[in-house]
């Protein structure tokens, strides 16, 4: 493999890795606030992609289709929390996780009824004339993906570290009862976490649609990879989730280059199994989030 090829695989790895990172962030935000692993996370990514495609086909300009997709998934995520998660608050986390499995099936079926079974394309956000970097070619869409991911991560970082609401969300993750005793509404924190995680996932789905087609069933694999990335990072730490996503993407890129593209999707499974057997707390999991 030449240096150029190597760089090419790294670029492609970073692009896919950014999408995994956004999905992993979605898992982490919900898990931190509630202890729930949201099995519908991948479906929210898929819904983001298909909504953008649908709106674009309906005649909206690409930027509006992108924003529209975020709003649609935001609404779906809020309804999902209100209808499936909140009523089960007293029943405990297991019941809620099962509800997310149900929601993932429902979303997949709905997507199939709306958009059919075929994988659909979306044009790249700003053309497809590749940019040459050190001999390797970089598509403008990659820059969109990486740039948006960076903006989202910085915005989240600002929200969690600098705003009182963000600190309240972190407080809830550590000790929900104490947070309530300070006047934080736990229910609002849960709703907010689902909403933010939905929007982030939708952004990932809408941005990846021009790179790899999107179909009603794309959510399963995207969800699995996002989950593997989140687990690699330790499932409680947003920055580690981003790191996990990028690592997974780059490993996949290198596997395609060094071995065969047939093994690409196996990487996520291998990572998931390795982490669960060798280091269940993840790479950064000194701290396991304690919950009541």
């Amino acid at each position: 493999m030449t240096g150029q090829q190597f760089l090419q695989y790294i670029f492609s790895g970073i692009t896919n890795g950014s999408i995994y990172a956004l999905t992993a962030l979605g898992f982490t935000l919900v898990y931190n606030a509630t202890g729930i692993i949201n099995f519908a996370q991948g479906e929210l990514v898929m819904l983001g992609g298909l909504s953008a495609i649908g709106l674009y086909r309906a005649g909206l300009p690409l930027p509006l289709a992108f924003v529209g997709a975020l709003i649609i998934v935001l609404i779906v995520a809020v309804m999902f929390e209100q209808l499936a998660i909140r009523p089960l608050m007293a029943k405990g986390v297991l019941a809620q996780v099962i509800a997310t499995v149900g929601a993932s099936l429902a979303l997949r079926t709905a997507a199939m009824m709306i958009w059919g079974r075929e994988a659909l394309p979306l044009p790249p956000f700003s053309g497809d004339t590749p940019i040459r970097v050190l001999g390797a070619s970089l598509t403008p869409q990659t820059l969109w993906v990486v740039g948006t991911t960076i903006v989202i991560v910085l915005a989240l970082q600002f929200f969690y570290k600098r705003t009182l609401t963000g600190k309240a969300v972190r407080a809830c993750a550590v000790n929900p009862l104490a947070a309530r005793l300070m006047g934080v509404s736990y229910a609002s924190v849960v709703l907010l976490s689902f909403a933010v995680s939905g929007v982030i996932s939708a952004a990932g789905g809408a941005m990846v649609a021009p790179i790899s087609f999107m179909s009603y069933s794309s959510g399963a694999l995207l969800g699995l990879k996002g989950f593997a990335a989140a687990t690699l990072g330790g499932l409680g730490n947003p920055l580690a989730a981003v790191f996990g996503g990028l690592t997974l993407g780059i490993l996949e890129g290198l596997a395609v280059g060094l071995v065969s593209s047939g093994y690409k999707d196996a990487i996520a499974f291998v990572i998931l199994l390795l982490v669960l057997f060798v280091r269940p707390q993840g790479l950064f999991g000194g701290r396991v989030v304690e919950r009541e």
């Binding site: 009182l164 600190k167 972190r170 000790n175 947070a179 005793l181 300070m182 934080v184 701290r287």
Partner: peptide, 15 residues
């Protein structure tokens, strides 16, 4: 019942 991973100042702000 403090928020252990948060700083002293953040704990007070949450108060």
């Amino acid at each position: 019942q403090l928020f252990g991973p948060l700083t002293v100042q953040e704990n007070l702000e949450l108060g």
